[in-house]
Design a protein around this nucleic acid. Structure first.
Lengths: 341, 341
DNA sequence: CTGAAAGCGCTAACAT
DNA sequence: ATGTTAGCGCTTTCAG
């Protein structure tokens, strides 16, 4: 009878039909997928672990793009996509343990995330996206350092030397305010760490002392965070001529706060983002575009690809693109700003 | 040993630790979730069936809002959310059969969808969202008829009598063009059927013969579809003073096409949408807002709620809201349009 | 083509 | 407090 469902070719169509009809009449609901999974050792699904609440993921355009790509790859392979409820506040790892999946995609979690540890203990393959940068696991990402260096050099060419930075959370502990160099270097989010390090390098090349550059951290990744961080930055150091944000969401918030305070962009202040989300392009934000959808797709492909047998972990590094918008321009000196050109 | 993992309270912490340590040292990866599911008869996950390709869902803001709400509800209950790869083009129902879930949420599928039939055969609860309107299943939706009637009366009060309609697909077969009354009445998508029926009623009340109202159908739910449908509508009947669309996505496309042709909105033509997505509010589209996120949340709650035992199906009907924007105004007569006011 | 049986890894009930 | 066992429903293998 198992054959009737699973191997239509092994018996006559007529018999098959008879068996299936009878089964249905007897109220048999079809093979139990869980029992089948146990036996065949495959679940037909990919698990996705995110650092944020599930619902947040749907509010971040970059995350949605990633999901779109990942869903595409899963769909192509006939696999489902299981979103795992991993509340970053809790250390409850049960959801990872009880996910019936053939593998995991881990999207942008801190390197000390207990859920990540739980994933790594499961005897199924995993692909890590963006961060952390574990050497033993397949990985998809971009060259964060090179990408943001391009942006930094763009500003340097325009003449900026006094900048401020707004970044996303650097650790699982909340810190809304200035981030010390130590905190920057020890950041548990590889992406943020790499971007800050690259910025410090790029500006060191033109003689800027990174210790003097204010870096404001925000735990929540929202436009409101970007706005308040921009305000804090301007108050902390009124002489900065540019604000570099490590995401478009933060930059868009900063942009509206700066304008709300009556300062013109880019004449009075330059603002840059990172990601290249639709809204950023719409308002002409100067930023770096990264292929978020492709990232999801690549992660899914890597996980589901048959050629998974090779010993050493594979790595996919996707290209990024500088998007010169209308929010970056040459700085005016302090004198000019107060007394006119 | 099972106890060590599942019932920490049943044995001494010390022993528990010893057992777990030994297990790990022996390379035991923890209890297999699939075997556990088989035994306990629960998967800890909710399946979501969509009418579109998975990846499409992430491009439609209304669907993303729904997902956000559903994910929220699942998260609250500690359940995962499994996105089921149900390609609407294929009749391949295997993905539904092999989904290890405790229940299904079905989002906006046609009433003759084979995947839906497969879901109904599974011996787990289901909640249907928006459509179809099956009497035996729990349901979450809005009063589509009442909602769009409010919009229709708004236009009628403004003086519109000659309108055109752009609607989404009415069946699983592609028909990009006029939809006959018969096709409208027999539509397999309950939501579209209800909205068209309500429009016909509302306009019948002021003496408009629905047979004379052009209804243009589009299979793909994109702004481009809305644009080309608007063009077709204007060519088909240049005298119409208003275009009512059954979604904001279509309306936004129509809006830009109409403007591209040099006609002013609403002076030359009134345009309305449906859903209340962010982009619609941003451009001031006259539309109806429905609480998409709440819809997802309600669907999840209904499915996961313990009080599932009652005999008759439960129904949640959410409120909608007329959003008078700047794309609806009084019509100008044909004479005015050609010879000025 | 059909039937019987082993066993996937777990949990819950029962026995010690 | 710990050890033993039946069986969840399926697929696969082997014998008829």
């Amino acid at each position: 009878m198992s054959n009737a469902y699973n191997r239509p070719d092994q018996l006559s169509p007529e018999l098959r039909k008879r068996v299936l009809d009878t089964a249905r009449r007897l109220g048999y609901p079809g093979p139990d997928p869980v029992a089948r999974s146990l036996r065949t050792r495959k679940a037909g699904a990919v698990g996705l672990l995110l650092t944020e609440n599930l619902s947040y993921a749907f509010r971040d355009p970059a995350a949605v793009g990633f999901l779109e790509g990942l869903a595409l790859a899963c769909e192509d392979a006939g696999h489902g996509l299981l979103l795992i409820p991993a509340n970053p506040e809790h250390e409850d790892v049960a959801a990872v343990h009880s996910a019936g999946v053939d593998g995991f995609v881990v999207y942008s979690v801190p390197d000390d995330d207990p859920h990540l540890a739980a994933v790594m203990e499961r005897p199924v393959p995993a692909v890590i996206c963006d961060q952390p940068n574990l050497s033993e696991v397949d990985r998809v990402g971009i060259d964060d350092g090179a990408a943001i260096k391009g942006l930094a050099r763009h500003l340097i060419e325009l003449g900026h030397r006094k900048i401020g930075v707004i970044c996303m959370r650097l650790a699982r502990t909340r810190n809304d305010g200035p981030a010390s160099s130590e905190r920057q270097v020890n950041a548990h989010f590889h992406v943020q760490r790499a971007r800050l390090a690259a910025l410090s390098e790029a500006f060191a090349e033109v003689g800027v002392d990174w210790e003097q550059v204010p870096v404001i951290e925000r735990f929540d990744h929202t436009p409101e965070s970007g706005g308040s961080a921009a305000a804090q930055l301007m108050e902390l150091d009124p002489e900065i001529t540019a604000v570099m944000c490590t995401s478009d969401i933060l930059a868009l918030g900063a942009l509206s706060e700066v304008r709300r305070q009556g300062r013109r962009v880019p004449q009075d202040l330059t603002i840059t983002g990172f990601d290249g989300i639709d809204d950023a392009e719409r308002v002409g934000l100067t930023t770096v575009r990264q292929p978020v959808m492709e990232k999801g797709r690549a992660a899914g492909r890597l996980l589901l690809d048959a050629g998974e047998s090779t010993g050493k972990p594979r790595e996919v590094v996707l290209d990024t693109q500088l998007v010169p918008g209308s929010t970056a321009g040459a700085p005016r000196s302090v004198e000019e700003r107060w007394f006119g050109p």
